[in-house]
Amino acid sequence: MLEGKVKWSNSEKGFGFIEVEGQDDVFVHFSAIQGEGFKTLEEGQAVSFEIVEGNRGPQAANVTKEA
Rank of each mutant, 00 (worst) to 15 (best):
A60M: 01
E53C: 15
G44F: 05
V6I: 12
S31F: 06
S48L: 13
E43V: 15
G22Y: 05
H29T: 05
E53P: 10
E53I: 15
A46R: 15
F17W: 08
I33E: 04
G16E: 00
E19S: 13
G16H: 03
N55M: 14
G54D: 06
T64V: 14
N62D: 03
V6T: 01
V47N: 00
G16I: 05
S11H: 14
I18C: 03
E21I: 11
S31C: 09
F49M: 03
E12W: 12
E43R: 15
G35D: 08
A32H: 06
V6L: 07
I18E: 01
E66W: 14
K13V: 06
P58S: 07
H29P: 08
E66N: 14
E43S: 12
E53S: 11
Q23M: 14
E53V: 14
A46H: 14
E36H: 11
E43Q: 14
V52E: 06
N10T: 06
A61G: 07
F17N: 00
R56P: 05
F27P: 00
E21Y: 12
F17T: 02
G37Q: 08
Q59V: 10
D25M: 06
S9P: 00
F17Q: 03
A46G: 09
K39W: 11
G14H: 10
F30C: 06
E3Y: 15
N55R: 15
E12M: 13
G44I: 01
E50Q: 14
G14T: 14
A46D: 07
G4Q: 01
S9H: 09
V52N: 04
E42N: 10
A67P: 13
S9N: 05
L41W: 04
K13D: 04
I18F: 02
E36L: 10
Q34K: 11
V6Y: 02
E12F: 12
A60N: 01
D25I: 05
L41K: 00
I51T: 03
V47G: 01
I18R: 02
F30P: 01
N10A: 06
V52R: 08
I33W: 06
G35T: 08
V52S: 06
K13C: 12
F27R: 02
E42W: 13
F30A: 03
E12N: 10
T40W: 13
G22E: 04
E66R: 15
G22S: 05
A32V: 07
K13I: 06
H29S: 07
V52C: 10
V20T: 07
E53M: 15
V47H: 01
T64F: 13
N62W: 08
I51G: 01
G44T: 03
G57Y: 04
E36A: 11
Q34P: 06
A60E: 02
K65L: 14
A67L: 13
E36I: 11
F30Q: 03
T40R: 09
G35Q: 07
A60W: 01
L2F: 13
E50A: 08
G35F: 07
N10D: 09
I51Q: 03
Q59C: 08
G14Q: 11
S11D: 07
F30I: 06
N62P: 01
S31W: 07
E53K: 11
I51M: 08
S11L: 14
L2N: 06
D25V: 06
D25L: 07
F30K: 05
V6M: 06
P58F: 09
S48F: 14
K65P: 11
Q59G: 03
H29G: 05
K5N: 07
I33M: 08
N10W: 09
V6R: 01
A67V: 13
A67Y: 13
V26A: 01
Q34F: 08
S31H: 06
I51P: 01
A61R: 10
V47W: 02
L2K: 10
K7V: 07
K7T: 05
V26K: 02
H29V: 05
E3H: 15
V28K: 02
E3T: 15
N10H: 09
E3M: 15
K39S: 09
G35H: 06
S11E: 09
E43N: 13
G16C: 06
T40P: 04
G37F: 08
F38D: 12
F49S: 00
N62K: 10
K65H: 09
K65D: 03
F17C: 07
L41S: 01
V47R: 01
E21Q: 11
E43G: 08
E50W: 13
A60K: 00
F30R: 04
A46K: 15
G57Q: 02
V47P: 00
D24R: 14
E19W: 10
F17M: 05
V28L: 07
G14W: 09
I33Y: 05
E53D: 10
G4F: 04
F27Y: 09
E19V: 09
F49R: 00
N10I: 06
E21C: 14
I33K: 00
D24G: 11
P58C: 08
S11F: 12
F49E: 00
V6H: 03
L41N: 01
Q34A: 11
E36S: 12
I18G: 00
E3F: 15
V6S: 00
S48R: 15
M1K: 15
F17V: 03
P58T: 07
F15C: 05
V47I: 06
L2Q: 08
V20I: 10
V26Y: 04
L2S: 06
Q34M: 12
E50H: 12
F38Q: 11
F30T: 02
F17R: 01
P58D: 04
T40Y: 12
F15L: 04
K5A: 05
G35S: 08
G57K: 03
E3A: 14
K39N: 10
G54W: 07
W8E: 00
N62C: 10
Q59L: 07
K7C: 10
D24I: 10
G35W: 10
G35I: 06
E21M: 11
F38G: 10
I18V: 04
G14M: 12
K7R: 09
E3S: 15
E43I: 15
E66I: 15
Q45T: 11
H29F: 08
H29W: 11
L41H: 02
T40S: 11
W8F: 09
Q34W: 08
K39M: 11
E19L: 11
G4I: 05
L2P: 02
G22T: 03
E3W: 15
G54Y: 07
V63Q: 03
R56K: 10
G57D: 02
P58L: 10
M1P: 09
W8I: 01
K13P: 03
E36P: 12
I18L: 07
T40D: 08
F49K: 01
N10R: 05
A61T: 09
G4Y: 04
W8A: 00
G14N: 10
E66P: 11
D25R: 05
V28S: 01
L41P: 01
S48A: 08
E50S: 11
A60D: 01
T64L: 11
S48G: 05
E53T: 12
T40C: 15
S31D: 05
G22L: 04
S11Y: 12
G16L: 04
L2C: 10
G44K: 04
F15T: 02
E50V: 14
V28E: 02
E36Y: 10
S9I: 15
G57P: 04
E3L: 15
Q23I: 11
V28R: 00
E43W: 14
